[in-house]
Design a binder for these strands. Structure first.
Lengths: 196, 196, 196, 196
DNA sequence: AATGAATGAGTGTTCATTCAT
DNA sequence: TATGAATGAACACTCATTCAT
């Protein structure tokens, strides 16, 4: 697998387009090959099998995605700021690539358990970034002590994910970045009146 | 479709088992028929096609699921209590039916856009229950005013869903009901120290 | 098989209608039963199997068809008159029952070799009527001597059949009885100028 | 559809054999593929679907059939000679290919209305050849004037077709070419004594 | 005689993957 | 490296027929 060869990226980009446009189940290998401008057989010089295209797609795209988030957040001072930046950058990146948003939020979830297991492995790096911010927040005494780390992480990720999925399902008809602050506020303060 | 005929339920229960054990894509109609103890053709006396088994399964099981939650929550006094009860009942019911938990959290999500659309329609009733509790909370001045209802609903549902999915993916090795209180607390208070 | 019971005819009439309206391949036993106002299983009290419905249909309808032709022709004096009457009565009867025309000319020909063999047996009685008229014509010295009887029969039947089929395929948009005289003339005189 | 590739013809020839031997309804795609020595899937590289095999078969075989008839007839001088040649060539070609005779006279007629419509389109070219001969005959004053062209065409085609079908149903136990002259004579002169 | 729920055999078509060139 | 023709396993669905009532 020669990941730095241009065809590798060519095929992955074709896969994102094809899946976004046709849906997961109508995205045959031959369709991806055609869009990438290579022969069907060539795909198998760069990927083990069809599933490997999808896993690689996710690794490649999520790698860039997470790197960007890491860059943006490290410069911020407080955990609260970092969390807001994380949410904003998360939303911004998906808003900037409509095809990718469809693929990650809707289409890739139709894959089987095995593939989703592998996708989850890629996500771990992202979850670690979240974990660290939470850790910092607790250390800085911004966040409550005694928080269940796994639940906190689920809360943050689950809410961002649910928000993006809803936006994609509404066909991206509003600006999701506008919701970042409110989502951040809900995560930080919850539903309760803060003056109580 | 004769939904009160025993075979209708027989087949649905078989489908839950077969899908939980074999995964969505390895759950052939013939396998479901065999488990249900009927002939392949009998399936089609009760369901339009394979997809209709899944939609009916979700309607049938989620109908009971939501009814139970409606029952449990109405008796509670405050919105806060209702929310806790909702989370607990949600967790309890899935903890009580391991197969169903696998099917709803993992396998049914592999379905195509069309099927997921139908599943979402069934879910609407549940989301309405959540909406009402939030509404009550705001009226009772337990919750903040000016909350974005859609985001709040996403927060509550997203966090429960994420929590259950994580539990299922960890092969249900811990007691998820134990997490209900903490999830509730996170939703109500968020991450921030409440004394600030 | 109780052929004088009213249900026997009921089912046959239903079959003619269903086949004419839906085509041979979309005429399921259950559809015929429904149109006849009986249960699916009842069909099998009157007919051995599906094929037997079709054979019986043909026997029943062709029996009447041929009887009528026998009646009309015997009263005529010359073979030439008899032949004209045969052609006219053939066309008249099919023109009078549109459904039957569709079934005999188009739909029943889609049946398999076996069924068509049985249908041909029913037709033999009709071919005998034609044979006799030819025989008479030769005896009366109206027709040429030395005619190959089988070919003559094929000529007469083939031309009537082809004419009716064409009329059915043109959706019966013209009056086929008007063509009887011309068909008769072609059979009697052929294409050649008679003055030569 | 690559009609000049050898496999295209290979599959068509296999289809003729399989259909002639097993009958239309027992001719599964897999059986045709096996006889052609290709994989089931290969069929679909050359044909849209099963029906397309049959339509292509008819086009391919009838194309050659009609071409041969066109060649043979054009060299003849009179319309009468041309008609005789047409009948002879028609019979000769089917006599030379027993399998094809069975397929065209019996098996292909079991197809549905749609398919028969397509088959009729192919036949139109043949009917045009007949029309032209009749036209010439009238111009040459060999044939009567005032003939109903459609009926004449039906007469000629219907009689040849009926003759071939009878021969096929009698399991081709006699030499059909021997009947060409008599059929020709019947069409030209009809049944009547010519001296009257 | 009549019912109609239940049966289960039977098949066209797709598409990920291979391999000779 | 690259090709693309060929492969063949896999599966949802229909419908004629049966049989317990």
């Amino acid at each position: 697998m020669k990941k730095n060869k241009p065809k590798f990226k060519q095929i992955i980009d074709a896969a994102v387009e094809v899946i976004a446009e046709n849906g997961y189940h109508s995205s045959q290998v031959s369709k991806i090959a055609k869009k990438a401008g290579v022969a069907d057989g060539t795909i198998y010089l760069y990927f083990k099998n069809k599933e490997d295209i999808l896993v690689s797609l996710f690794q490649e795209k999520m790698g860039q995605f997470i790197e960007k988030i890491e860059q943006e957040t490290t410069s911020k001072q407080s955990a609260e700021q970092k969390l807001l930046t994380l949410i904003q950058t998360h939303f911004e990146q998906l808003a900037a690539d409509h095809h990718l948003a469809i693929v990650t939020q809707l289409e890739l979830r139709q894959s089987n358990k095995e593939l989703r297991q592998k996708i989850n492995n890629v996500l771990k790096r992202y979850l670690n970034v979240i974990d660290q911010i939470v850790e910092e927040g607790v250390e800085e005494e911004l966040f409550r002590d005694g928080l269940d780390r796994r639940l906190v992480r689920q809360m943050i990720f689950g809410m961002m994910d649910e928000t993006v999925t809803n936006w994609v399902m509404k066909e991206q008809r509003y600006n999701i970045v506008d919701q970042a602050k409110e989502v951040h506020s809900l995560i930080i303060h919850g539903l309760a009146r803060t003056d109580q």
